[in-house]
Simulated assay, not measured.
Amino acid sequence: MNDEEWALVRDLLPVPGWLAGRNGRPEGYCHRQMIDAIRYLVDNGIKWRSMPSDFPPWPRVYAFFARWRDTGLVAEVHDRLRDAVRVAEGRDQEPSAAIVDSQSVKADATVALTSRGFDVGKKANGRKRHLLTDTLGLLLDVLVTPASTTDRDAARILLGVTLDIVRRSDDTRGFEVLPRRWAVERSFAWCLRSRRLARDYERRTDTSEALILWSMTMLTSRRVTARHQGPAQMRAV
């Protein structure tokens, strides 16, 4: 992160327990170092053990990642950044409509058989990412399942509201832009810019979900920063 981006992200970070008078002790490394290391891993698709030496040691970075995953802090930071983008776009923080769709990705050998499946339609042996986004394509929720899971079953977990299913017409051939669905398709494309997400390498599905959140956090933090810097930078994001 550059200094402008860090200045915005820092104000949205949760207050550490030790600083708020709760239990715990100060971190050995500052949050900016840890967050930059995780973003580097997600963006460039490296292994944890391949963390460059100018970042903190990889076990410390992974411990930070796991703690934020397990306590929901990465989701909290992501949601705050998403809300900031919506406000900057002139929208309410709470969206009135949402879009859900899925993407099947191949799984690496590290993914256990119990958490992978075969998507007959996409001919993919791996996992399926289910994204719930607003109409801007910003992430509202994410669920990672075996690729054999149907979209309808996953939607029951993600949603508790009325569904409006957008279907293709029977005589359509090839790609067709469908109402609203293009927004979530673009979100999948945004995620695939992060090389760690080109394939599912994670042993746990909640780790896969956390990496998607980190990927979208990079997008939202850059968009918020660009909004503060001016329209020229916004067009480049």
Rank of each mutant, 00 (worst) to 15 (best):
D70V: 06
Y29H: 15
I38L: 08
K122S: 00
R82A: 03
V144Q: 02
Y29A: 04
N44C: 11
Q103W: 12
L136I: 07
V42E: 10
A97R: 03
S102M: 10
P57W: 14
G28C: 07
A107F: 06
V74M: 08
F65Y: 15
A98C: 10
R82H: 09
T110C: 11
K47N: 10
E89H: 14
V87N: 04
S96V: 15
L131N: 05
L131G: 04
K106P: 00
P52A: 13
D83E: 14
T71K: 09
R67F: 05
D101A: 10
V144C: 02
S50L: 14
S115C: 06
S53H: 11
G126H: 01
Y29K: 07
V100S: 03
V87A: 14
N44H: 15
C30Q: 14
V74H: 09
P57C: 06
A66H: 11
R39W: 11
E27N: 01
L41Q: 13
V77N: 13
R116V: 00
P52F: 11
H130K: 08
A63F: 02
P59C: 09
G45E: 05
V142H: 09
K122H: 01
I99N: 09
I35M: 12
D54K: 09
L136G: 06
G121N: 06
Q93K: 12
G117L: 01
F65E: 04
P52W: 15
W68H: 11
R67A: 14
T133G: 03
V111W: 00
P59L: 04
T110Y: 09
L73G: 02
F65H: 13
V87Q: 13
V61H: 01
W58A: 10
T135E: 06
L139C: 04
S115H: 05
F55M: 12
G28M: 13
K122Y: 00
L113Y: 08
V77D: 09
Q93T: 14
R39D: 05
V144G: 02
A124I: 15
A112L: 08
L136R: 08
G117Q: 01
H130E: 01
T135Q: 07
D119Y: 00
G28T: 14
R60H: 11
Y62S: 07
A112G: 05
D70G: 11
V144A: 04
D119F: 00
D108K: 02
A112P: 12
E89Y: 11
P95F: 10
Q103Y: 12
R80Q: 09
V42F: 05
K106D: 10
W58K: 08
F118Q: 05
Q103M: 15
I46R: 10
W48S: 08
N44P: 02
V142M: 03
V111K: 03
Q93D: 03
V77I: 15
R116F: 00
V100C: 04
Q33Y: 03
D79E: 15
I38Q: 08
D134P: 07
A124Q: 08
P59M: 13
S96G: 09
R60L: 04
D79H: 15
L136T: 03
P56Y: 12
G121A: 07
A107S: 15
A98N: 04
P26G: 01
A63C: 10
G45V: 05
D108E: 13
I35S: 04
R69W: 06
A84N: 14
D79L: 13
P26Q: 01
R82Y: 09
A88H: 10
L132C: 02
